[in-house]
Lab assay of single mutants.
Amino acid sequence: TQVHVDGVTYTFSNPEEAKKFADEMAKRKGGTWEIKDGHIHVE
């Protein structure tokens, strides 16, 4: 599962880990995350 944050791609083999990471990054940025085309995007 790929997580895209500010133009950087992080790859996780476990989708649950990817979601936890996205959640943390979104909180830090004061933003949100969503799943697009099977990838997670942090806004």
Rank of each mutant, 00 (worst) to 15 (best):
T1H: 08
T1E: 03
T1D: 03
T1Q: 05
T1L: 11
T1I: 13
Q2S: 10
Q2V: 13
Q2T: 12
Q2W: 10
V3W: 01
V3Q: 00
V3N: 00
V3Y: 01
H4R: 04
V5G: 03
V5L: 08
V5E: 01
V5N: 03
D6N: 08
D6M: 06
D6A: 07
D6K: 04
D6G: 08
D6V: 02
G7A: 05
G7V: 01
G7D: 10
V8Y: 12
V8D: 10
V8S: 08
V8H: 12
V8I: 12
T9S: 09
T9V: 14
T9H: 07
Y10R: 04
Y10N: 03
Y10M: 04
Y10V: 08
T11L: 12
T11P: 06
T11I: 13
F12V: 01
F12M: 01
F12Q: 00
F12W: 01
F12D: 00
F12H: 01
S13I: 10
S13R: 07
S13V: 11
S13E: 12
N14S: 11
N14M: 06
N14H: 09
N14E: 11
N14I: 06
N14D: 14
P15M: 15
P15E: 14
P15K: 09
E16Q: 09
E16M: 09
E16Y: 09
E16R: 06
E16C: 13
E16W: 09
E17L: 09
E17S: 10
E17H: 09
E17R: 05
E17Y: 06
E17A: 11
E17W: 06
E17K: 07
E17V: 09
A18W: 01
A18F: 01
A18D: 00
A18M: 01
A18R: 00
A18H: 00
K19I: 15
K19N: 05
K19Y: 14
K19M: 14
K19S: 08
K19A: 10
K20S: 11
K20F: 09
K20C: 15
K20V: 10
F21N: 00
F21V: 01
F21Y: 05
F21L: 01
A22P: 00
A22C: 04
D23I: 13
D23G: 07
E24P: 00
E24H: 08
E24V: 09
E24M: 11
E24F: 10
M25V: 12
M25G: 01
A26G: 03
A26M: 04
K27F: 10
K27M: 10
K27I: 10
K27W: 08
R28W: 11
R28L: 13
R28N: 11
R28F: 11
R28Q: 14
R28A: 14
K29F: 15
K29G: 11
K29M: 15
K29W: 15
G30C: 14
G30S: 04
G30K: 09
G31D: 04
W33V: 15
W33L: 13
E34R: 08
E34N: 06
E34M: 06
E34P: 05
E34D: 05
E34A: 05
I35E: 14
I35C: 15
K36Q: 11
K36R: 10
K36G: 05
D37G: 06
D37V: 02
G38E: 04
G38K: 03
G38N: 06
H39K: 07
H39T: 10
H39M: 14
H39Q: 13
H39V: 15
I40D: 02
I40E: 02
I40F: 12
H41W: 15
H41G: 03
H41R: 07
V42G: 02
V42W: 04
E43K: 14
E43A: 11
E43D: 11
